[in-house]
């Protein structure tokens, strides 16, 4: 039989590693905040009229659906998964909502059903991933096409929400500060919903056992299971949350534009993923924050704003730029991960 030797060094924690480790963790988030600030400053210098109430208001109003999507995506990515279906789910949800609203159903029914359509797709992804062990990107890719196909069966031309629909009230501006001329600080009910979602998500992730299980799964799924945490249920919930928030994003988006279309949301999964990744959440799971994703979504919103203001960048190039930014941040994560591994 074997013999055990004595390991001489004391095996206590080495605090020296700590500070540097956490700095490294925060690096992508710091980078994204810095980029957002830079974009503001550059925008103000190059085009002006950035630091004023109506621009800021519009930034939040226009980004609210993306922020909601990004919050849902954060949950999924924290567990090490991905949800590619959110963009298509929005198309199905918003078409369902508009058809129902135009049929004269009351808004208290229309909105919950619109959201539940999203939940249903989330549930299906979750079941495939958790109970049938399908890789997340395959399961949600299948849902992406399924949803897009269903949306195309529902309608192939844009469907307009009736002008008098109470659905639109979610985007009625509420003036907070009355500035000179049109320069007011306004919010819409949608923005308030978005803020509530963000606050709830922060609390759930930080202050509930469910939230801690999400992080544990992202860190080491196998260990989480052996520690007796409800891994299966949590993973199911994560996709359910992402789908539900996609449904909610559909409500917010539709109330603002008043149009539902089978091609709504093409490529939004990339925007949501980009927002999450830019905000510092590791694509491999386990590290990240909801507030980071909010910053990430604002970066993307700001980018769209600057491109519009600039006017010389062709709109076709937007996806190339988003893709490029996403790529840069994924590369940054890769570097951080390698540095970490080397130290461990």
């Amino acid at each position: 039989m074997s013999t055990t030797l004595t390991r001489p060094r004391p095996t206590a924690a080495q605090p020296a590693r700590r500070g540097r480790g956490s700095l490294l963790d925060a690096l992508p988030t710091i980078a994204s905040v810095a980029i957002l600030l830079l974009m503001f400053v550059y925008g103000e210098a190059a085009y002006g009229k950035i630091f004023q109430y109506n621009t800021i208001s519009n930034l939040f109003i226009n980004s609210s659906y993306l922020i909601i999507l990004a919050v849902g995506m954060t949950f999924v990515i924290l567990t090490g998964g991905i949800d590619l279906s959110v963009g298509s789910v929005i198309a199905v949800s918003s078409l369902t909502g508009v058809f129902m609203a135009n049929a004269g159903l009351p808004v208290v029914i229309v909105i919950p059903v619109t959201i539940l359509v999203g939940s249903l797709f989330g549930l299906m992804s979750g079941v495939l991933v958790q109970y049938f062990n399908v890789q997340p990107f395959i399961a949600t890719l299948a849902m992406m096409f399924l949803a897009r196909g269903i949306a195309s069966i529902m309608a192939t031309t844009p469907v307009r929400l009736d002008d008098d629909s109470s659905f639109r009230s979610l985007s009625e501006p509420i003036k907070l500060i009355d500035g000179p001329k049109t320069n007011d600080l306004v919010v819409t009910p949608s923005v308030i919903i978005m803020i509530l979602v963000v606050v709830a998500a922060v609390l759930v992730l930080k202050r509930t056992r469910f939230g801690r299980t999400v992080y544990a799964i992202g860190g080491a799924e196998n260990s989480a299971g052996l520690m007796g945490l409800p891994v299966a249920r949590t993973k199911l919930w994560v996709y359910l949350i992402s789908g539900t928030l996609a449904g909610l994003a559909a409500v917010v988006y539709t109330s603002r534009t008043g149009i539902a279309q089978n091609v709504t949301g093409v490529g939004w999964e990339l925007d949501a993923i980009a927002a999450v990744v830019i905000g510092g959440t590791m694509l491999t799971g386990g590290y990240g924050f909801v507030l980071g994703s909010v910053v990430g979504a604002l970066v993307i919103g700001m980018m769209t704003l600057l491109i519009t203001r600039d006017g010389t960048v062709p709109p076709e190039a937007t996806t190339i730029i988003t893709g490029g930014i996403l790529l840069v941040f994924v590369l940054l994560q890769r570097v951080v991960l390698l540095r970490k591994k080397k130290k461990a």
Binding site: A13, R209, R212, T213, Y215, A216, G218, G219, A220, N222, S223, A224, L226, M227, G228, L229, G286, Y287
Partner: peptide, 18 residues
């Protein structure tokens, strides 16, 4: 060792029993 390296020592000890 079946713990989560991305969490703190205390969180690992208390995970599920917070």
């Amino acid at each position: 060792v079946n713990l989560c390296e991305n969490l703190s020592i205390g969180e690992n000890v208390m995970l599920g029993n917070e």
